[in-house]
Amino acid sequence: MRWSHIGLNCRDQKLTEEFYTRWFGFTRARAVPIPDGEIVFLRSGDAYLELFPVGAEEGTPGQGDGPATPGAVRHLAFQTDDVDAFLAGLGDEAEVTLGPLSFDDFICGWRTVWIRDPDGAIVEISQGYTDQEADPAQASVR
């Protein structure tokens, strides 16, 4: 098991991305399209942030991957080599809130499940995530 990222909910995703890139040295590692925009992965060394666009409404429920409240941590995330083996090891202690889901449309072999910890926090467990290859045209923009 390896640390992966923290998912953050953003009222203004572009402003949040600019804040973390300007002041903390993060760069865009990947963007994944979703119906309401995109999910942006930022990277600084081995640290990742996953930025979710959310509205300004407080207390908005998530969809199994954590609460969608602006300014709140959506979930903690870890990487494993085998999501199914990890779940089997948890046995009855695994309260799955979403998944397992396959994201092969974006990265071949990317699979994820979300579980609830004993205090109710959502924990994402993934296998197969990789950064997007750098686009030389975007390098000068960021």
Rank of each mutant, 00 (worst) to 15 (best):
42 L>V: 12
91 G>A: 12
38 E>N: 08
45 G>H: 15
55 G>N: 00
108 C>S: 12
85 A>G: 07
33 P>G: 04
120 G>Q: 06
75 H>C: 10
121 A>K: 05
97 T>Q: 04
5 H>K: 00
66 G>F: 10
138 Q>G: 02
51 L>W: 09
48 Y>H: 14
97 T>V: 06
15 L>Y: 07
80 T>Q: 07
66 G>C: 12
118 P>W: 13
90 L>K: 05
90 L>I: 10
30 R>D: 09
99 G>Y: 05
26 F>G: 03
78 F>E: 09
57 E>N: 06
131 D>C: 00
126 S>R: 05
137 A>K: 12
24 F>G: 04
100 P>R: 08
67 P>H: 13
98 L>F: 09
140 S>N: 08
85 A>H: 07
128 G>L: 01
60 T>E: 11
81 D>H: 05
47 A>C: 14
49 L>H: 08
93 E>N: 12
46 D>Q: 15
139 A>S: 15
102 S>D: 13
88 A>Y: 05
11 R>S: 11
113 V>D: 02
6 I>V: 10
52 F>D: 07
72 A>K: 09
114 W>S: 00
28 R>V: 15
63 Q>N: 13
48 Y>T: 07
8 L>W: 02
77 A>E: 10
63 Q>D: 13
136 P>A: 01
133 E>S: 05
46 D>K: 15
72 A>M: 12
116 R>G: 02
113 V>T: 08
64 G>L: 14
72 A>D: 02
119 D>M: 11
74 R>H: 11
